[in-house]
Design a protein around this nucleic acid. Structure first.
Length: 463
RNA sequence: GGCGGGGUAGCCAAGUGGUAAGGCAGAGCUCUGCAAAAGCUCUAUGCGUCGGUUCGAUUCCGACCCUCGCCUCCA
């Protein structure tokens, strides 16, 4: 069965066929580094991570680029308020972002271009010049350069917006009278006092790039004029991605991206996430509450990207329990397998996992396949009906699954102190000294490990 | 107002024109010195409401209700 993804552009499921066989050029819109990213941002990044890992699972070579927007209204406002240079203001947020990605086990992109890098600014200026030459851009009275949306007939096709129906919304500044059309967007913003010392010289004077041109310049600059897949959150569809298409295609004359994939927003406890509602979380907020990156990852991963996700504390707790079940199974397989060589096993769920993902990243169905297999093979293990070699094969399969899900347990080595106490406890138990046994168990618990007595002896698990 | 998602068991959530995956929670059982953990088993005559099409609809069509998102720099 071919891989199918839902293309936002056609609004249909389409077979995935990259421009170049076996290779995928993937561009994903990254964060604006004026603050710590919140879990809504991370839902998008985890979806993109799943996409990349799934493609790699299916043997594609993925070249992924994620941009960092480190100059815009908010970053400028932030650095001005703090009275520090822009780069100094954004640096800690960039660092925090990369830490968070690591915590959530999001595979690093191949490149993280920054909007303020000199070569990217140069490319943006060059693209804007080309647009101006071709009549797609014009300079307004305020010195800014705008994209003329009337010059690109396909404008609105991605978002399915009809130009004539575009009305001035509440967020359109009514004083932007210098634009030809209310929908024209800034390619280059002329410097004004609020920008402080943020600005670059250009053919249009000092100023800074518009948001949309950043992505067009960095995407085409690094990946070439045509991308296979461009991703982002659903809110990016309009105007951001619509603008990117217009700018890029007017410069290159080629279709910008073959596929567009957008993930839905999440809600928190059933309502829109908002600071004012008190249900706004950064990853750090959740870590402070004692949740692990792996738990947050599963909670954000477990719902299909095209469905709204209801993020709840119950959901995190459910993720924690589900992971415990998964870990237990994994440990059981490893133990049963011993050093046996793999032996063929065949369960329909093993293929179902990948097939579910092939079907537009149906993660819920993929996880269901994993858990069905867990129950089925646990039954066999309970009855002693799973050969070591078969367990080995299943463990190998699970390794492949984790190359996509990245939910394997943290490697935790047993501290020598706990190891020693376990030895003492084993002796106490051999002589049926239950009091000593229980007391040592409590002692081990204070070190953060839980002792389980199984038919095969003691086992310590990280609390 | 325009465009587009959702509404499936206590919670989260797949899915299909032929009679409901999976996870969590709950109950029972097994194992066990006790405990904990774990494992197994069970749990929706029902899929927002009302109509229609059909031998048969949760799945298709229509209307309505609720909810969420976008409508010019928010993932």
């Amino acid at each position: 069965m071919p891989i199918r993804y839902f293309n936002s552009y056609s609004r249909q499921l389409e077979d995935f066929v990259p421009l170049e066989e076996g290779r995928v050029r993937l561009y994903t819109c990254g964060p604006t580094v004026y603050n710590f990213a919140h879990i809504g941002n991370f839902r998008a990044y985890i979806f993109e991570d799943l996409l990349q890992r799934h493609l790699e699972f299916r043997s594609f070579k993925v070249h992924r680029v994620m941009n960092l927007t480190d100059v815009d209204d908010k970053t400028i406002r932030g650095c001005r308020a703090a009275g520090i240079p822009l780069a100094v203001f954004t640096k800690p947020f960039k660092e925090a972002f990369f830490e968070d990605l690591k915590t959530l086990r999001i595979k690093p992109a191949d490149q993280y271009p920054e909007a303020t890098a000199a070569d990217h600014i140069a490319r943006m200026i060059s693209m804007i010049s080309t647009l101006e030459e071709k009549g797609h851009a014009y300079r307004a009275d305020d010195g800014s350069v705008y994209f003329r949306i009337r010059s690109f007939p396909a404008y609105g096709r991605l978002a399915h917006i009809v130009l004539d129906e575009l009305q001035a919304g509440v967020r359109v500044r009514s004083d932007e009278y210098e634009k030809e059309n209310v929908g024209d967007f800034a390619l280059w913003k002329a410097w004004d006092e609020a920008d402080g010392d943020v600005g670059w010289e250009s053919p249009w004077g000092r100023g800074r790039p518009g948001w949309h041109i950043e992505c067009s310049a960095m995407a085409t600059g690094i990946l070439g004029p045509q991308l296979d897949i461009h991703c982002g959150g659903e809110d990016n569809i309009f105007p951001h991605h619509e603008a990117e298409i217009a700018q890029s295609e007017c410069v290159t004359g080629l279709r910008f991206s073959k596929y567009w994939m957008h993930c839905k927003h999440l809600q928190v406890e059933g309502t829109k996430m908002a600071k004012s509602a008190g249900n706004f979380f950064t990853l750090r907020d959740l870590m402070d509450k004692g949740w692990s990156g792996r738990e947050v990852r599963l909670a954000l991963l477990s719902v299909k990207y095209r469905e709204p996700l209801n993020f709840t504390m119950d959901g995190l707790a459910a993720a924690r329990s589900a992971l415990a079940r998964l870990d237990e199974w994994s440990a059981r397989l490893t133990e049963t397998a011993g050093s046996a060589p793999p032996e063929p096993v065949s369960f329909p769920e093993m293929d179902a996992f990948g097939s579910a993902l092939d079907d537009d990243l149906n993660i819920s169905a993929a996880l269901a396949a994993v858990f069905e297999l867990i129950r089925e093979t646990n039954r066999l293990l309970d009855g002693g009906n799973l050969a070591p070699g078969q367990a080995k094969s299943l463990a190998d399969w699970l390794t492949g699954v984790h190359s996509v899900l990245a939910l394997e347990p943290e490697a935790a080595s047993l501290p020598a102190e706990v190891q020693a106490l376990l030895g003492l406890r084993a002796q106490a138990r051999a002589s049926k000294d239950w009091k000593a046994s229980d007391s040592i168990r409590d002692q081990i618990a204070t070190l953060g490990w839980m002792v389980k007595d199984t038919k095969d002896g003691q086992k310590a698990i990280r609390l």
